[in-house]
């Protein structure tokens, strides 16, 4: 198993993700600069957080149109796992690999804070290590994380169990106060209809070791490793 962590100009969480896979999980992962278009030989892809292309035009818009994204789409179409964290989530929606859009936070300010998430669907490549309904603690750091979609498409996402995570309070209740950015229906992360592409605004790689204050995020990466070992 070999995982590609794509680096765009302005990616800044790439090393953190590499650290999780290589140092903590002992998994073969490599940084891939966006100009290397060939992703054959990789079994999965991570689009890490950051500010690709300075968030010009819209967050993720420029990165989503780079040629390497054609290879990422190919990997996604082959059913291999593609994970987008924060800016990676924005890139995946801009690339139409995930549905909807990430808009400026309802209170238009950069937020860097802990959030609680409810695991809505533990039946995916990325969430199998969690219990359904489990409440986990993972931080967010963004200004454009306000998930939006039309009521019709939201219905479809809900009916297909594509909502993976929602913002909740510590007790697991969906409240306005626990929604950091105004996301519709408190949505923090979604998958595509096949379930092999996940995007989420919170940063699981920043909550993957006890020293960081939470290691709940590690289960997401462990779920991916399980998937590869069971393949």
């Amino acid at each position: 198993m070999k995982i590609a962590i794509i680096q765009f100009g302005g990616s800044n969480c790439d090393m953190d993700v590499l650290h999780i896979f290589k140092d903590i999980l002992n998994v073969n992962a490599e940084l891939v600069w966006y100009k290397n278009k060939d992703l054959s030989g990789y079994d999965g892809v991570v689009l890490p957080g950051g500010f690709s292309y300075g968030d010009y035009l819209r967050s993720g818009a420029i990165a989503s149109r780079t040629p390497i994204m054609d290879s990422v789409k190919k990997i996604a179409n082959e059913g291999k796992p593609v994970l987008g964290i924060c800016n990676g989530f924005q890139i995946l929606t801009e690339a139409s690999l995930l549905d909807g859009a990430l808009m400026t936070n309802s209170y238009p300010k950069f937020i860097c804070d802990w959030t609680y998430l409810k695991v809505e669907n533990n039946n995916t490549i990325f969430t199998s290590r969690f219990n359904e309904g489990e409440v986990i603690k993972i931080p967010v750091a963004h200004k454009e994380g306000n998930y939006y979609n039309t009521p019709e498409r939201l219905n479809e996402l809900n009916n297909n169990h594509q909502v993976a995570f929602r913002y909740v309070n510590q007790k697991g209740h969906l409240t306005n106060e626990s929604n950091p950015n105004g996301s519709v229906e408190n949505i923090a992360g979604i998958t595509n209809s096949k379930g092999n592409v996940l995007g989420l605004m919170p940063h699981p790689e920043r909550a993957a070791e006890s020293i960081l204050g939470s290691k709940d995020g590690l289960k997401l990466f462990l779920s991916m490793v399980d998937y590869f070992s069971n393949e």
């Binding site: 035009l57 819209r58 149109r65 801009e94 909807g100 808009m103 939006y148 979609n149």
Partner: peptide, 9 residues
């Protein structure tokens, strides 16, 4: 349609 606007929003 392809880049400058996002048809969703």
């Amino acid at each position: 349609r392809r880049l400058i606007a996002n048809p969703v929003i």
